[in-house]
């Protein structure tokens, strides 16, 4: 029996989750209130000085655009809007490729399958703003360890993983050598090769703080790994025979930590490719600084 296709998790939940973990408190509601309390919005003087085009946004008003008006003006197709692929009335979701070396398509993870094997590596007492916003954001979304999944494109040169949470890409190149003198980046320098039908991804030169989340939201962030220049991550990714799942077994090894490597597993499920948009995460940064967009509501 064919398994039910999953729709990607909308990113709002993950934004709230990010806030929860960033502030290091338990309970989403309480965290959100705490987060709201430290959002500093633009002053009235700022707003007066701003262009009328976005004064409303600066005032924290959520702008809703009547797109039906635009469609009528364009003379485009009328009638009800399109339905999500795989959803009620929507187009069918194509079956996943059975090619064990073809990872292309849309994948979701998380829930009961999100990194169940994660172990505490380095429990830090607090969460200090020593990194930039990107560093903070990378905590949750980079290095492909997010359990939220995304879209994979694959060609002979590279495999690109576009995350569904904030539409940013991680690139993995099919080559046998790392970039000489690779400058540390949030995604690191990732190279890959095939061992049979297993894709082996080797990543070095990772910067910032990287987290492993488990499903235990009640206790917040437990699986935190501080990326040092010595951090080395090896992923072994295999596709199931029916093409429905990708299993990513990640080995996190930081010799400088003096601790044994950590092995975690993330399972991704082939899913309907729902349209993905950009803004929730972009404005999530307002949590940390001057309110500039819609931010938290």
């Amino acid at each position: 029996m064919k398994s039910e296709r999953r729709r990607p998790v909308r990113s709002g939940l993950w934004l709230a989750l990010a806030a929860s973990v960033a502030i290091g408190t338990a309970g989403l509601d309480a965290v959100t209130e705490a987060a709201k309390a430290q959002v500093s919005r633009a002053t009235e003087q700022d707003i007066e000085a701003a262009n009328p085009a976005f004064q409303g946004l600066l005032r924290g008003q959520r702008t809703t655009i009547d797109t039906s008006k635009n469609r009528e003006a364009r003379g485009g197709p009328g009638g009800p809007p399109a339905a999500f692929p795989g959803g009620p009335g929507g187009p069918a979701v194509p079956n996943p490729s059975r090619d064990p070396r073809d990872f292309s398509g849309n994948w979701t993870g998380g829930g009961e399958n999100g990194a169940p094997g994660a172990k505490i590596v380095e429990k830090r007492p607090g969460w200090v703003a020593t990194t930039t916003l990107d560093g903070q954001r990378m905590l949750f979304v980079d290095l492909g360890v997010t359990p939220t999944g995304g879209h994979i494109y694959q060609n002979k040169n590279e495999l690109v993983f576009v995350r569904s949470t904030e539409l940013r890409a991680r690139r993995i190149y099919f080559t046998d050598h790392h970039t000489p003198g690779a400058v540390p980046t949030y995604n690191g320098d990732s190279i890959a090769h095939w061992e049979g039908n297993t894709l082996v991804v080797d990543t070095i030169a990772i910067k910032g703080m990287i987290a492993k989340l488990d499903n235990d939201l009640e206790h917040g962030l437990h699986h935190l790994l501080m990326a040092r220049p010595t951090l080395h991550v090896v992923e072994r990714i295999t596709k199931s025979a029916d093409g429905e799942t990708l299993t990513d077994v990640e080995t996190w090894d930081d010799p400088a930590s003096g601790k044994p490597p950590v092995v975690t597993t993330t399972v991704f499920h082939y899913a309907a490719d729902a349209p993905a948009y950009d803004s929730e995460y972009e404005d999530g940064g307002d949590l940390f600084g001057p309110g500039y967009g819609t931010g938290f509501k």
Binding site: R62, T63, T64, I65, T67, R71, G76, P77, G79, P80, P81, A82, A83, F84, P85, P91, H151, Y153, V160, V162, L167, R168, A169, D273, P275, A276, Y277, D278, S279, E282, T294
Partner: peptide, 28 residues
Amino acid sequence: DFLFQWNRLDRAIPIMDKQIDDPDEPFY
């Protein structure tokens, strides 16, 4: 997908015959 170098942004466009009446807010 247009994957930009600028701040690693991605513009993802579904290939469909009409817009999905989904969002309640505008997008960048």
